[in-house]
């Protein structure tokens, strides 16, 4: 894991891409250079002690040429509310890249990537990275899930990469009516040879839990990215724990946020 960097990054862009969902572009070349898919930034949203703690937000896009980095976040509370009000040209205090990201697949593997809601954000960078490595179009399928059409994002970006993208919405306003895990079930039924498959997922806990069950049932390796409230974000405070299948707990910020499905107990 690379050494994290503290940076006062310039905001290049900060705009609403769907209701309450923002994309922020930051200039932080030294972090951009090191970042791997699945890693996150720990962002200070306020200059005062309110709100006190930083907010962990995953890296959604990397532009190696410009040194810019994109994050996509949902406004859910005090911190993200302040973040969405920041203007281009101003600076934001970030630490990154943090955590253990997604291990990239071997060249002969076929990747199935599942993203749910705001969990789609890190999936974008992961899909891009895998697409760069694998020239074969059939080697990646992305399954996305949103509550409704209005909240969908990232689809055009994935299609521009030439990545096969299938969308589900809870209410059926876009694509399949149902959950992305239903799409995963269907996908696995349609594909006879799943021995070379690897699954990646980021989304709400119940979705990850379902992915873990499906992958476990078919003996497919699966990597899950977890979301948890954090204090330090670097492994010192032991505040963001997830139950380990071995004994005790693992730190979401440092041992994760991406875990091999067998490492963690999501029940």
């Amino acid at each position: 894991m690379s050494t994290p960097i503290v940076s006062l990054a310039e905001i290049i862009q900060n705009s609403e891409i769907a209701p309450d969902i923002y994309r922020m572009e930051l200039q932080a070349p030294e972090i951009t250079q090191k970042a791997n898919p699945g890693q996150f930034l720990h962002i200070r949203c306020s200059d005062t002690v309110s709100p006190l703690l930083r907010r962990p937000i995953s890296i959604a896009q990397i532009n190696e040429k410009t040194g810019n980095m994109g994050i996509i976040y949902r406004v859910v509370g005090e911190g993200t509310q302040l973040l969405c009000q920041k203007s281009p040209g101003s600076r934001v205090d970030i630490i990154g890249p943090l955590g253990r990201g997604f291990p990239l697949p071997d060249k002969d593997k076929t990747s199935v990537i599942i993203g749910g809601g705001i969990g789609v954000a890190p999936i974008l960078y992961l899909a891009e990275k895998i697409a760069q490595q694998h020239k074969n179009d059939n080697s990646i399928t992305v399954l996305l899930g949103f509550v409704t059409k209005q909240e969908a994002f990232g689809i055009e970006f994935l299609e521009s990469l030439g990545v096969k993208t299938i969308v589900a919405t809870d209410d059926g306003t876009l694509g399949y009516k149902g959950f992305p895990t239903d799409l995963l079930d269907k996908y696995l039924k349609m594909h006879q040879d799943i021995s070379r498959h690897v699954i990646y997922a980021c989304g709400p806990k119940h979705m990850l839990s379902r992915v873990k069950t499906i992958a476990g049932g078919k003996n497919i390796p699966a990597y899950l990215s977890l979301e948890e409230r954090m204090a330090c974000g670097i492994g010192a405070c032991l505040g963001c724990s997830v139950k380990s299948t071995q004994e005790g707990y693992k730190k979401v910020c440092k041992d994760g946020p991406v875990f091999e499905a067998g490492e963690i107990d999501l029940d």
């Binding site: 703690l53 204090a231 963001c240 724990s241 139950k243």
Partner: peptide, 19 residues
């Protein structure tokens, strides 16, 4: 092993922990 999650909670100008 410490306590089960959640272990932290943000409060005005502070935080609660139960590590």
């Amino acid at each position: 092993h410490g306590n089960p999650p959640p272990r932290t909670y943000e409060t005005p100008a502070g935080m609660l922990n139960s590590v």
